[in-house]
């Protein structure tokens, strides 16, 4: 690669093994700090610059392209076992900027900023004219489907009463409109049968989350509700919750690494 002398950084191949290691460490960091939604997987290294750090180490300045997987951030499934959300399912991509320090063979993320975008409706229509499209969480059919599914789940459940924590994904199909939702619930200190006033039910100190998928399919003169929930193991109470990757606020840059690094 041409030594970009004087620029303070070196350009290397985006598929260089070290770059790939840095990119994988960055995506791990992202998934550990996402507070909601679905985990992401590395799809492509768009750009990379390698800055030399005094007295030692290098910083990889990366632009990465990620794709959403079907695993929720609370789902303990190993990322390698998570499927990538396909185009026909209305895929979501992430665009991330990372600075990853490599020192003594270790990769450490020192700057992260990401935002995600769903595929366009036109592109989904191209591959699947009748597939569902992502829709707003406060769409009335979404709210109705989530409430009906949660009530049905609690009615079938003879343990704790579960409360809604997050609507993670919602899609409507073209008419006859059917609604597909994915949402997170958590166990409370009420029993499912005894919860007369859910507002008085509190989440357990030792959180127990569940991930639910539900659909409300319109039939000719009827509608069919189906719901399936996976309840995860109880989570030990966090000593101090991990800092979030704040996708909105500009992250605090560590004293402009490129300049200081040069």
């Amino acid at each position: 690669a041409p030594h970009a002398m004087g620029l303070g950084f070196r350009e290397v191949a985006c598929d260089d093994p070290d770059v790939e290691q840095a990119a994988l460490a960055a995506v791990d960091y992202l998934n550990q700090h996402l507070q909601n939604g679905f985990r992401h997987i590395l799809n492509q290294v768009d750009k990379v610059k390698v800055w030399f750090r005094r007295p030692f180490g290098v910083v990889f300045e990366l632009e990465l392209d990620t794709l959403e997987t079907t695993c929720h951030v609370l789902d303990p499934t190993p990322l390698a076992n998570c499927s990538v959300r396909q185009l026909v399912e209305h895929a979501v991509e992430g665009d991330c900027d990372f600075h990853v320090l490599k020192q003594d063979g270790q990769f450490t993320v020192i700057h992260a900023q990401c935002h995600s975008n769903p595929d366009s409706a036109e592109d989904v229509r191209k591959v699947c004219p009748n597939c569902g499209l992502l829709t707003s969480f406060n769409d009335s059919s979404v709210v109705n489907t989530v409430n009906a599914a949660l009530n049905a789940f609690n009615a079938q459940n003879n343990g704790s009463y579960f409360k809604l924590v997050e609507i993670s994904r919602a899609q409507n199909t073209p008419p006859p409109v059917s609604t597909f939702v994915e949402f997170v619930v958590a166990a409370t200190d009420c029993t499912a049968q005894g919860a007369t006033d859910p507002a008085k039910c509190n989440l357990l100190a030792e959180k127990q989350y569940g991930f639910c998928k539900a659909s409300l399919v319109k039939k000719l003169d009827d509608e069919e509700l189906s719901v399936a929930c996976r309840v995860f193991q109880k989570q030990p109470q966090p000593a101090n919750p991990a800092p979030a990757v704040d996708q909105a606020a500009p992250p605090v840059p560590p004293a402009n690494p490129p300049a200081s690094l040069v």
Partner: peptide, 27 residues
Amino acid sequence: KVVHSGPAGAADPAVRLCPGRVRYFRI
């Protein structure tokens, strides 16, 4: 003896460094 070389030594096409390979698909 004049040896007709081919076109001026075509420079190796610059190895494209980035973007890297697409692991799944592009949106």
